[in-house]
Simulated scan of single mutants.
Amino acid sequence: QHHAHDFALKGDTKHETPFFVDLRAAFTHESGERIENLPGFYDGDGTWKVRFAPNLEGKWSGVTASNDPKLDGVKLPAVECVANDNRAVCGVMGIDPEYSHRFAWSDGTPYIYLGFECDWLFAYHQRAGDEKFRKAMDLLDERGFNCIIMNVYAHLGFSRDQDPAEHFFDPPDMYVFEGTNDQPDHSRLNLEFFKDFDQVMSYLHAKGIVVHLMIQVQNKEVKWPRRMTAEDDMYWRYVVARYQAYGNIVWDTSKESYNLLNDLAEHAYVLDRINLIRTNDAYAHLVTVHDSENESWGSVSEADEASDFISDQIHFGEPDGYNREAIRRWRDRTATGNLA
């Protein structure tokens, strides 16, 4: 219960760009409850996967739908979901249904967000390896942090010249697309990158640490696909498909999202990305936008209104400032009802 299980499907249809194949699955519990429209993803070597996390104990059956005839209408092996035995795993993190200014897990366990920003964690895992990564995450857990704020990918700008060599993680060892950041192939994703990222996600999920995942970043010199193109949509859908089965996910459209507003003079792209996430997320994880407008603290933008909670970056010179800001926001809470 609440743990990810992968169903692998082999397809022998030749696709020039297999990442554009649409694969979805619907799962039915023996009680009749359904999890529908769960997207699958390409995982290399003619293999597509559907990553499923049952929310109820008991027998589940599933069937696929796809624009590839070989992947369409496939009955997936039935699974018997047993009780969750990991007390750190409590389902999907969301808004408390009884009190909209609080977070809670889907099993009813309250959640108080205490985050640690580690934007480059994906790159640290690539370079330091799984053992050092786990020790670092265990230390954060021991110190009381229950959320990691991180990027899917960033290219430059998260190491300093005075840092020791072992603390340099940019550019990362693996690029998120095929090719390089200078000469990217945006029609294909780097599957080794995502298989490495799977290890990060799996361990943080097992520890009950929420991953506040920024799908893009706008100020770290990444050559993203041109906005609103098929390649752009493919990347976003792939991230959502591959990681939504982990109940500890919070989607964030972009770190430093105000750069999009400065570039485009409107929130249309961010609003479209929010809609894309929600359309493709069968588990309805929370969605937010990091810094939707520059220095917008205490105000609510159009992108904030569309979010499940507001995510602003604020700097104060002394710790008391954060407490005062929290009190002010509580006092002046807006019609959205959800501030973080």
Rank of each mutant, 00 (worst) to 15 (best):
H2L: 11
H2I: 10
L9T: 04
T13G: 07
K14N: 14
T17W: 07
D22Q: 14
A25C: 13
A26F: 06
F27V: 00
T28V: 12
H29D: 00
S31W: 07
G32E: 01
R34C: 02
E36T: 15
N37A: 14
N37Q: 15
L38N: 04
G40L: 05
F41P: 05
Y42H: 09
K49D: 00
A53E: 01
L56H: 11
E57L: 10
S61E: 03
G62D: 01
G62P: 03
V63N: 08
T64C: 09
L71Q: 04
K75L: 15
P77K: 13
A78E: 11
V79C: 00
N84F: 07
N86P: 04
A88C: 06
M93F: 05
G94E: 01
E98R: 15
E98H: 13
S100N: 10
S100C: 05
H101C: 12
F103Q: 00
W105T: 07
T109H: 09
L114N: 03
L114W: 02
G115N: 04
F116G: 00
C118T: 08
F122T: 04
H125D: 02
H125V: 15
H125R: 11
H125P: 05
H125T: 09
Q126L: 15
K132N: 04
K135V: 09
L139K: 11
L139R: 13
G144S: 09
N146A: 06
I148V: 15
I149P: 00
R160S: 07
Q162R: 14
Q162I: 14
A165H: 00
E166I: 13
F168Q: 07
D170K: 11
P172H: 04
M174I: 08
M174F: 12
Y175Q: 01
S187G: 14
N190F: 08
F194N: 06
D198G: 13
V200G: 05
L204E: 00
I209G: 00
H212A: 05
M214R: 14
M214N: 10
I215H: 03
I215L: 09
Q218N: 14
E221P: 02
E221A: 10
E221D: 08
K223A: 14
K223Q: 15
P225S: 10
P225I: 13
T229P: 12
A230G: 12
D232E: 05
Y235K: 02
Y235A: 04
Y238H: 12
A241V: 13
N248R: 08
N248S: 05
S254E: 01
S257T: 14
L260K: 01
L264I: 08
A265S: 03
Y269A: 07
D272M: 07
D272G: 10
N275F: 09
R278V: 09
N280G: 13
N280R: 06
D281E: 05
L286V: 11
D291N: 11
S292H: 07
S292P: 07
E293M: 13
E305H: 03
S307K: 03
D308P: 08
F309D: 00
F309N: 02
I314C: 07
H315G: 01
E318K: 09
G321E: 01
G321V: 14
E325I: 12
R328P: 07
R329H: 11
R331W: 15
T334C: 14
A340L: 15
